[in-house]
């Protein structure tokens, strides 16, 4: 029992690592991708569009397998499962976040940019102080949904053998002929997502002071 808890705790840490590392990289990268999708330079736009289509059009589980095994089949080299897992999650989630950012950016009235320009604000100042705060307010609900999905998606990392919480729970469950470990894992995902959605609700409330 002691052993089981320690194992599950380690699995939980791995799941949390996948979660946070994915967010740390894909939240900013999503912006870069969104910019790429909105660029005037057609070839870049096509490539970015294709990338987003692939990420959204194929299962994440397949992408994980591809990212981990492709280098092995192509070049005969293999690399760390955990690294492969983070890589796959980041390129997948950057695509999803980029679409959320893009819809947010495009929902901002052109008049906001024009007013800022006429008042003499620099491009950077306009983006960070005028546009971005309004974008964040608008996309927060969609972002919340995506982050909740990410919590659950971390369980897919087991496909390439990463010992995250769900894999640990499954292994323990078949070893001990008990569903208890699975149940414990379920509680973790639930609690985690409860916290995530609470945080997003607080964020939305905080931004409720204007329309």
């Amino acid at each position: 029992m002691q052993d089981l808890l320690v194992q599950m705790l380690e699995g939980t840490v791995t799941s949390l690592e996948i979660f946070f590392l994915t967010l740390v990289f894909s939240l900013p990268l999503g912006f870069v991708v969104a910019k790429g999708k909105m660029t005037k330079i057609a070839p870049i736009r096509w490539i970015v569009d294709l990338y987003i289509q692939i990420m959204r059009g194929t299962p994440l589980i397949l992408q994980l397998i591809f990212v981990y095994f492709a280098p092995f089949y192509l070049f005969g080299t293999s690399y760390d499962r955990f690294t492969a897992c983070i890589l796959a999650f980041v390129i997948n989630y950057s695509a999803y976040f980029s679409e959320i950012y893009r819809s947010g950016l495009q929902s901002i009235d052109r008049g906001q940019y024009e007013a800022a320009k006429v008042l003499g604000f620099s491009k950077a100042y306009t983006f960070f102080h005028i546009i971005l705060p309004q974008v964040i307010k608008r996309i927060l609900p969609a972002l919340g949904n995506e982050v909740i999905t990410l919590v659950k998606d971390t369980a897919l990392a087991q496909t390439i053998g990463v010992a995250e919480l769900f894999r640990v729970a499954q292994t323990a469950s078949s070893r001990e002929f008990s569903t208890v470990p699975i149940f414990i894992a379920g509680v973790f995902y639930f609690v985690m997502n409860y916290i995530v959605s609470r945080l997003f609700t607080i964020g939305e409330k905080k931004l409720n002071y204007y329309r």
């Binding site: 008049g111 007013a115 006429v118 003499g120 705060p133 204007y210």
Partner: peptide
């Protein structure tokens, strides 16, 4: 030169936040 000119829009374009 831009700072010498001001423009008032039909739709106000105030910053809502």
């Amino acid at each position: 030169i831009g700072l010498k000119t001001g423009l008032v829009f039909q739709q106000f374009n105030l910053f809502p936040h």
